[in-house]
Lab assay of single mutants.
Amino acid sequence: MAAAAAAGAGPEMVRGQVFDVGPRYTNLSYIGEGAYGMVCSAYDNVNKVRVAIKKISPFEHQTYCQRTLREIKILLRFRHENIIGINDIIRAPTIEQMKDVYIVQDLMETDLYKLLKTQHLSNDHICYFLYQILRGLKYIHSANVLHRDLKPSNLLLNTTCDLKICDFGLARVADPDHDHTGFLTEYVATRWYRAPEIMLNSKGYTKSIDIWSVGCILAEMLSNRPIFPGKHYLDQLNHILGILGSPSQEDLNCIINLKARNYLLSLPHKNKVPWNRLFPNADSKALDLLDKMLTFNPHKRIEVEQALAHPYLEQYYDPSDEPIAEAPFKFDMELDDLPKEKLKELIFEETARFQPGYRS
C-alpha cells in the first residue's frame, strides 16, 4: 500500500510507478496490472468513496492506442447498470505532455475469474450472474457493438453480487458484411471463450460470437473449470467437437473457408456428449439454455433477447427493466489503419471533457 500523499506533496508512487492523480484522489492501494497499465484503488475526496484507477501508458504502440481509444469512446457513450462506466479521466493539459491516461471507475471487490478459483456457486448465484451478463449484453448488442472478449476476468463483482462487464478494448461495431482481413492475426481474445466460426472463417462476425462466450462462462460457473481449455488453435476446435459432436452437413455448409471445411470433413465422426453427463448436478433449465448458447452453427445460436426470456431466468426476466441503447454506435473511421500519432490526438480530444474549465 502506498503511503497517503500529504496535501501538495506531488504524485504518489505505487510499486515504483508514478500515479499522478492528486489532489482529488489519494490513499492509493495496488490492485493489479494488465498488459499496459496498473490498477489501484484510491480515495475520492470529492465523492467520499474509494474508486478504481487504471493507469494506461499506450502511446508507444499502435495496438494499445487503438484499444484505449475504443474503450474510452464506447464506455463514455454507454450507460447501463451492468456495464462499468467511466467516472473521470485524468491526463496532462497538453498533448505533448500526455504520456499516461488515468481512467477512474467504480471500485468492484472482485471478478468472476477470482471468485470461481475459490468458491463453488449455488444455482441461485449462477442464475443471477447469468441474468446480469445477458442484461448488459442486450444493451451492448442493441448499440450494434460486439464485445468480443467476454470471459470471467472481464466480469466485475461486488459483495452485493452486482455484476458489471468491463474491458471493451477489443470491441467492434457489428459488421457481418465487412471482410476484416487479418482478423485472426489481430484477434487476441482469450482462445477458450472463442466461437468456432472465428477459427473457421475470417469473413465478418456477428453478435452470436458473444453468446458463445457467455455459454462458455455459464459452463464454467457450473463446474469451476473452463469447458474448452484448448492449448492452441486446432486443439481448441477438437475440444469443442469432442463435446458438441461432429457438425451436420448443414452446419458445414455455413463454413465459407474450404480449407477449414475440408479439415472438419477429414475428422472421424464424434457423438455429442449429453450435458447432464458433463454437469450431473446442474439445473435442467440451465443445461437447456447452455445447449442453445453453445450451438456450433452461429445462425442457430440463441440471441440475447431470447436467452433473457428463457425459463431458467424467469424469476428475473423483465423486458421493461432491460434497457437498450438510445442509438446504434458508430465509429467515424476504422481505427485499425491509423498511425499511433493520430490515435493519440483522438484520445486527447475524447478525454477533453474531463479537463478543468472544459467548454463543449
Rank of each mutant, 00 (worst) to 15 (best):
G10K: 03
E12Y: 05
E12H: 06
M13R: 12
R15M: 15
R24P: 10
T26G: 01
Y30A: 00
G34V: 14
G37C: 15
M38H: 12
M38A: 14
V39K: 04
V39L: 12
R50D: 14
I56E: 15
P58S: 15
T63P: 14
R67T: 12
T68G: 13
L69E: 11
I72V: 03
L76Y: 01
F78W: 03
N82F: 09
I83F: 14
I84E: 11
G85H: 09
I86N: 13
N87H: 09
A92P: 05
I95D: 02
I103G: 05
T110Y: 12
L112C: 08
K114T: 10
L121R: 00
S122F: 06
N123M: 04
D124C: 09
H125E: 07
I126W: 08
C127Q: 15
F129M: 03
Y131T: 11
R135G: 02
K138A: 04
K138M: 07
I140V: 01
S142V: 06
D149T: 01
D149P: 02
N154L: 06
T159F: 05
T160G: 02
D162G: 00
A171Y: 01
D179C: 08
H180A: 09
F183S: 09
Y187C: 09
T190Y: 05
R191G: 09
W192E: 06
A195M: 03
P196Q: 09
P196L: 12
M199H: 12
L200D: 05
N201H: 11
G204P: 11
G204L: 08
T206N: 13
K207R: 12
S213Y: 05
S213M: 04
G215K: 11
L218N: 06
L218Y: 08
E220N: 05
M221V: 01
F228W: 00
L234G: 08
D235I: 02
D235R: 04
Q236Y: 04
N238C: 12
H239S: 05
I240G: 09
G242N: 03
L244E: 08
G245Y: 04
S248K: 03
E250G: 00
L252V: 08
L252I: 03
N253V: 10
K259T: 12
A260G: 11
A260H: 00
K270I: 05
F279M: 05
F279Y: 14
N281Y: 15
S284G: 11
A286W: 01
L294G: 04
T295V: 04
F296S: 12
P298H: 14
H299E: 01
R301Q: 04
I302W: 07
A307S: 14
P311Q: 09
Y317R: 00
D318S: 04
P319Q: 15
S320N: 07
D321Y: 15
E322S: 06
K330M: 15
D332K: 12
L335C: 01
L338K: 10
K344E: 00
E350D: 15
P356N: 00
P356L: 12
R359H: 10
R359F: 06
